[in-house]
Design a protein around this nucleic acid. Structure first.
Lengths: 193, 193
DNA sequence: GTCTATAAACCGATAGAC
DNA sequence: GTCTATCGGTTTATAGAC
């Protein structure tokens, strides 16, 4: 039994993921959330921007926990990459190529248009990198390698999401996975470095 | 001395790159292009959607030629990856993290909302992969490796653009470049395959 | 605090003068 | 082919009843 505010934030997150920030109207949000229009300005006096900032941070945190749950089951980095990309592909297909990254669309939209929201997306991505780096360190990598590999993992997923959603197939996800595996292996057995 | 239509298409491309599709108004387009409002519907009877479709294909083709010009100067794949990512980082910094991929924002926005425009973005990405694959073949890679590496190159760039524009630094671009290099090297000297 | 009504501005799209 | 005026409709945001 979620409160009205939580329902608005959750619904807005789903709409942002599919339609982006300017593409989603407040009217559509309250209609989908089953909430009265005034509730938005009751809970978010700062209007659409304040709602968006909270949505970015909330769905960013939720997605991070989802990915962490997957990564933490893996015994090593290669297995983690394998299962992570497989799970992403499954979700993508199962949702008709709609549910990829919850904030990427908004991140690109606000990067040059809304400094407040850009900072919110930057914080989310930074938290993801930190979270991933911690796990790569746990799998035995040195701090800078761990940070670099976590960045590689996230950028590869994000880039593959763009191509896969456009093409409506998972080819880019498979190719991206192979590159991340290569990057992990190169550090694990550094023969040409 | 570009015609009004070409000026509208060019201006719209720049606005889409920064603000996305629903975030850019037709009024803003004609104002920025110095064209009368009626010209849009004179040249694009299908309205905003038809204009967007032409913008996606046009800027997709232009960006492809830009990248090809860089890749064709490289003697081998590793050098090409190196200079390609370096050029992307330079452009990003020089434009205040605005000029990254010309169609990624729109691609994510329309992927689940406009089937016509989604197909346009899919065609552009497919052409990019074909173009890159041809060059990797020229550098000595087998057809499927070439296609996979081209896909890796494009997805890595796209994903890095998302994080770099959000964070306003080029760290993700550097990490992504290292992964693409690793993927190329792994095929060049396949010891663990 | 919940909900409705409405304001003021803006949207895409159209009509029609020139 | 250029340009302006305007139409409905929708947007974000607010005022105020309950």
């Amino acid at each position: 039994m979620a409160g009205t505010k939580e329902r608005i934030v959750g619904t807005t997150g789903e709409l942002f993921r599919r339609q982006g920030y300017p593409g989603t109207g407040l009217k559509q949000i309250v209609a989908a959330a089953g909430a009265p229009f005034g509730s938005i300005y009751h809970f978010f006096p700062g209007g659409k921007q304040q709602l968006a900032a909270e949505v970015i941070r909330t769905s960013g945190r939720a997605y991070q926990q989802l990915v962490e749950a997957i990564l933490d089951q893996a015994p090593d980095a290669i297995t983690a990459v394998e299962t992570g990309f497989a799970a992403a592909a499954e979700t993508l297909v199962a949702t008709g190529y709609a549910d990829a990254c919850p904030i990427a669309t908004v991140a690109l939209e606000v990067a040059s248009t809304d400094e407040t929201l850009r900072e919110a997306t930057a914080e989310v991505f930074a938290a993801w990198v930190d979270s991933g780096a911690m796990r790569f360190e746990r799998w035995g990598f040195a701090p800078d390698d761990a940070r670099r590999l976590a960045t590689v993992l996230i950028t590869s997923l994000e880039g593959a999401f763009v191509l896969c959603r456009a093409a409506r197939n998972t080819e880019a996800l498979a190719a991206a996975a192979s590159a991340v595996r290569a990057a992990v292996r190169e550090v694990s057995s550094p023969e040409g470095r």
